[in-house]
Design a protein around this nucleic acid. Structure first.
Lengths: 197, 197
DNA sequence: ATTGCTTTCCTAGAGCTCCTAGGTTGAGGC
DNA sequence: GCCTCAACCTAGGAGCTCTAGGAAAGCAAT
């Protein structure tokens, strides 16, 4: 009986593929084992339990998304960088809906595991870097980062949950929203004083 | 043996309470039945299956959230309305995390069921009404509605998933973001022509 | 080549879950 | 009292998670 050659990584990837194809809630020990041609009990040599597997998928997705954004933003600035960043984010969510959903489920992730994954932290840094050209200073910078991330995440989440009607193309709304955010960043209302000169 | 007096509504409410207390993924037939002092099989007289129960919880939450927003916005306009709307949204999500999560999970909801629930549709109308004062015309109005809803949803979703670091109070970022959105709506870049007069 | 160690993968099984099928019993109308 | 309907039950199949312990593949050293 030949061995399947499982590793933590292969199990995680199989789970991630399953998440994209069948939905994140279909990521179960049994299903992942079936996909790998293995009995479900065998997975427990590589992964502590289902919760840890799902957490690993979430971290994998966060890393992948971050890398994708980093590549898209590289060498760009201002509006170009904003649009590239946002499109990379949305593109990843569209192509990997299951993995993306994994990142937003409130799974308590093992801190030791999370420490190894540079994804989430680096994603924040990337956002700060992208905003450098807009001339914002703290604490406005942090607020702007949070606003942007909220909008990107909220948009793709509502898209995925069919939260938008069918009257107008979401693609167009997306483009217009990015334009609006660009304008907003250029005219950000600073917090330390009113906007009357 | 006295009857528990179950109805679809009571089952749904029990599920919603359970969602808030233990998390939406803990909403199972067994758990809800246990909470109602009943065997799980008994629930199937009132609810087709677990999926329908979760869908009903999602619709209940959407209705409750919409009512809360409607009350908050009533009689207000402009910035006041925007802030009231946003705070009502976030307040509901904070007080009912399980129900709120129910609304964003991609549960395929029975169309017949959804038709009875005025929540989602009315929520959109409310958003349009709130924006009336900003003088936007279609299709910018729709784009602005989508941007706002995305931001509100994304912010509370990231808050719930611990997506923000601990460096700055989320409450402050929230307030500043609302201010920024208000400015954005006042200076929305119209789509039919450039912004050069 | 044989031995021994480690890791991989297995079988077996307990306990929980969803859901169906069919039976019993309460409550209200006649 | 009796009938009917609905509410609630027991029984049971099938799938899932996870543990305990066993078999065997691969590797290293003798």
């Amino acid at each position: 009986m030949p061995r399947a050659g499982l590793t933590v990584e292969r199990v995680t990837i199989a789970g991630a593929e399953l998440a994209d194809e069948a939905g994140f809630d279909q990521v179960t020990m049994s299903q992942v084992a079936r996909r790998l041609g293995v009995k479900d009990a065998s997975l427990y040599s590589h992964v502590r339990n289902l919760q840890e597997l799902r957490g690993r998928i979430a971290l994998l997705a966060a890393d992948e998304k971050t890398i994708r954004i980093a590549e898209a933003v590289a060498g760009r600035a201002g509006r170009d960088a904003l649009v590239a960043y946002a499109n990379a984010w949305r593109g990843y969510a569209h192509e990997h809906p299951g993995r993306y959903l994994a990142t937003q489920t409130p799974v308590p992730i093992d801190p030791d595991l999370a420490a190894d994954a540079p994804g989430p932290r680096r994603a924040i840094e990337l956002t700060y870097g992208m905003l450098r050209g807009y001339g914002l200073a703290e604490p406005d910078l942090t607020d702007a980062v949070r606003l942007l991330r909220s909008t990107f995440h909220g948009f793709v989440a509502l898209e995925a949950a069919n939260g938008f009607g069918h009257s107008r193309s979401t693609q167009e709304s997306w483009g217009r929203s990015l334009e609006a955010l660009h304008v907003l960043l250029e005219q950000w209302p600073t917090s330390d004083r009113g906007d009357h000169p």
